[in-house]
Computed example of a mutant assay.
Amino acid sequence: MVTFSPAQVCVKIGTAGKSKCCLPAGNMFVRAFLAGVYIAMGAALATVGSTGVADFLGPGFGQLITGALFPVGLVLVVLTGAELFTGDAMFAPMAILQGQSTLKHLVYLWVVVYIGNLIGSLFMAVLVSYGPYTVWDAAGVATITAFGTRAIAIATAKVSYFGPMGILSVFFKGILCNWLVCLAIFLALAADEVISKIVAIWFPIMAFVASGYEHCVANMYFIPAGIITNAIGNGSANTEILNWGTMWTSNIIWSTIGNIVGAVIFMAVIYYYCYKTEICALCEAK
C-alpha cells in the first residue's frame, strides 16, 4: 500500500479543487444530486439500524450504532466522485490558497453543489418516508413504523435548539462535524487502494455521528424525512417545533456556517500553513 505525505495530500486536494470548480454546471449538479442521495442512504441505514437500540443497551450504544452505519454514505460519495458540499468546503479554498482557483469559482461550486445536495436529499426523504417509514392498508391509510418513529425523533431533536446558546451549539457542532468529515477525506486521499480508503473514511465519520455533531447535508435528509413521515401518518410530533421553517432557522443555516468554518479554517488554512513550503515545492516540480 502506498501512502502520501500530508503535503502531497494537500496538493492533491488543491488540484482536485481546481477540477471541481471547472465542471460544467449540469455535470456538477448531477454529481451533487447523487451525493445528496448517497449521504441520505447512509442516514437512512443509520436510522433503521439504530431503532430500539438505546432502549436495550443505553443511549451511548444507540449513538455508536448510528455512527457505525452512517459512513456508508461518504464511502459512496468519495469512491464514485460525487460532489458533496461539506467536502468542497475544503477543496475549493485549498485550490485558492495554492493559486489554482478564484473566489468566483468557489462561489459557483458551492452554490450549485449545495442546491444539488439539497434536492438529492429531499428526493430520498420522500422515497424513504413513503417506503420503510410507513405501512399502508388496503384503504390507503398509512401507519408509521418503528423506523418512522425513530426518524421523527431524530428530526425533532435536530430542530430543538432554542435561543442564542442553542444556535451557538449547532454552530460548534457544525465546526466539529466538518473538521472530522474533511479529515476523513484527507485520510482517504492519503491511501491509494479501495479498502484503505474505506477504512480511512469510516472511523472519522463514525466519530462525528456518534458524538452528535451536525452535518448540513445529512440534515437535509434527516429533518425532511421526519417532517414528511409525521405528516403522512398524522403523527404526534409537535409541528410547532418540527416544520420546514425550523429546519432552516434552528439547524441548517447554522450547521452550514459551522461546516464551512470547520473545512476552511481548521482544514484548508491550517494544513496549507503547516505544509506551505513543501506544497510550493511540489507544485513547482509538477
Rank of each mutant, 00 (worst) to 15 (best):
A190R: 01
G62F: 09
Y108R: 14
V75M: 15
I228G: 10
A95L: 08
I223R: 08
K104D: 08
F172S: 06
C21S: 15
V107I: 14
T3N: 08
N27S: 13
V126M: 12
F85L: 13
V2K: 13
A82P: 14
W244K: 06
A7M: 06
F61A: 09
A155I: 09
P204R: 00
Q63T: 05
A16N: 12
A54Y: 02
N27L: 09
T102H: 11
A200E: 01
L183H: 05
G36F: 05
R31G: 09
L127P: 08
G262S: 08
I198A: 09
T229V: 11
A191L: 05
C283M: 15
S169V: 00
A95Y: 00
P24R: 03
D88H: 12
V128K: 00
L97A: 12
D55W: 01
A151K: 06
V181Y: 01
V141T: 14
V217M: 02
A35F: 02
G60H: 01
G14L: 05
W248G: 12
G163Y: 06
I201H: 07
L74F: 10
L180S: 06
L242M: 07
S196F: 01
I201A: 12
G262E: 09
L76V: 02
M1S: 13
I270Q: 11
L282R: 09
V48N: 00
Y213K: 07
G67H: 03
C274E: 10
I198N: 03
S250K: 13
S250A: 15
G58W: 04
S250P: 05
M220I: 01
S129R: 04
C10F: 10
K18G: 03
Y130S: 01
G166V: 03
G99W: 09
S236N: 11
A139S: 14
A231L: 10
F222A: 09
A138K: 13
G258M: 04
G174Y: 00
C274L: 15
N259P: 07
L176N: 06
L23S: 11
A146N: 11
L109K: 07
A89P: 12
E83L: 06
V9A: 07
T47V: 10
V75S: 13
T15L: 13
H215A: 05
A25R: 04
M28D: 05
S19T: 01
I13W: 00
L84S: 12
P164Y: 00
W244E: 04
Y133K: 15
F147N: 06
S129D: 02
W254C: 04
T149L: 10
F266N: 03
N219M: 04
G245V: 10
A146H: 03
L176S: 09
G116R: 07
F186Y: 14
G140D: 12
A225N: 09
F70G: 07
L23R: 14
K104R: 13
Y221R: 07
L189P: 11
T80S: 15
G131W: 00
L242D: 06
N27I: 12
M94F: 11
I253L: 15
A25Y: 10
T256C: 11
I119M: 13
L109I: 00
A16L: 15
Y108D: 03
A16K: 10
L79Y: 00
I195D: 11
L76I: 07
M206L: 15
V181H: 03
A237T: 00
V78D: 06
C22F: 00
F91H: 12
T145K: 00
T3Q: 08
L76P: 08
N251I: 06
A281L: 06
A146V: 07
N259Q: 07
G131V: 03
A191F: 01
L176M: 13
R31I: 01
